[in-house]
């Protein structure tokens, strides 16, 4: 029962044109836990799988078996290395990135055709592919690289927060979350309503200091990222250290003679 039409889930939004809604009833989005993500790319694959075989134009690959393959993805995992200012070991941070469903979404207002819109009831930012001219201006206006122009279909593709899963009563209730959240084996992705202060996602953000990406762009992202927890530090004093200390710093006896003999050569 995957072949439900996208139209069934598109209730309002179009009438407001590309003006952003003043407020949305819900603020659906994701919390991504950078402490937990292991960078396995499962969310990337499940996102591509679900979204290529359900609504709209498939997520095409170009030159897939050739020398220079590329393709359209709605979710990608970057990996960064953070070198602490205080010295010590660098920390690896796997960093999944998809549409942040911004409250002040610049990609919506720049759209000349009304294809790009933000829904008043849940805040999800969507593209009506039947109205898209593929001008790319929405992708230019997005600081996060959340939108990719499909090179086969010529229309803009982006994360829908799996709108055809989360409201889909034909799916078991446990599956009514975005594909990336359902798939994540590490539990690093959480889906919920940020307008509800008692929701799990709101509590996670409050407890763990959830942050915005590039806040200086003024987009007010709905999706939040939980910073990695500080690493444990090795204790300076080790109980076994006195036992394991080298007994002699300079060799004696035969080894001492050998050392001197070799040095004299």
């Amino acid at each position: 029962m995957h072949s439900l039409s996208m139209k069934q889930f598109m209730v309002t939004g179009i009438n407001d044109m590309t003006q952003l809604p003043q407020t949305t009833d819900k603020k659906l989005g994701l919390v991504i836990d950078l402490d937990t993500c292991v960078g396995c790319q499962a969310c990337v694959i499940s996102c591509k799988g679900w979204n290529t075989e359900n609504y709209g134009a498939p997520l095409s690959d170009m030159d897939a078996y050739g020398a220079n393959p590329s393709g359209t993805f709605l979710n990608r995992v970057h990996s960064f290395e953070v070198q602490p200012d205080t010295g010590g070991c660098a920390q690896t941070v796997h960093f999944p990135k998809s549409c942040l469903h911004c409250e002040d979404a610049p990609c919506v207002t720049v759209c000349p055709t009304g294809a790009s819109y933000k829904r008043g009831e849940d805040g999800i930012v969507l593209v009506d592919e039947d109205a898209c001219i593929g001008c790319g201006l929405c992708a230019w206006s997005c600081p996060y690289g959340a939108r990719e122009l499909d090179q086969a279909a010529g229309v803009m593709k982006k994360c829908t927060l799996c709108i055809d899963r989360i409201y889909n009563e034909n799916l078991p209730e446990v599956d009514r979350v975005p594909s990336c959240v359902r798939t994540c084996p590490a539990g690093a992705r959480h889906f919920g309503d940020f307008a509800d202060p008692d929701s799990d996602v709101s509590k996670l953000v409050a407890e763990r200091g959830g942050m915005d990406l590039m806040p200086e762009q003024g987009t007010k992202p709905v999706n939040k990222y939980l910073p990695p927890r500080p690493k444990d530090t090795l204790q300076e004093v080790d109980a076994s250290a006195p036992i394991l200390n080298p007994v002699a710093e300079t060799p004696k006896g035969f080894l001492g003679w050998l050392d001197k003999a070799l040095e004299a050569l």
Partner: peptide, 28 residues
């Protein structure tokens, strides 16, 4: 600021999300 990881230290890319190119890289 892009990654929000500045409080932890100096950030650099360790591994790109894709080995080839994509629309974002060729366009922007």
């Amino acid at each position: 600021t892009a990654t929000g990881l500045g409080d932890m230290g100096k950030v650099r890319m360790y591994e790109a999300p894709h080995s080839g190119t994509n629309y974002l890289l060729t366009e922007m």
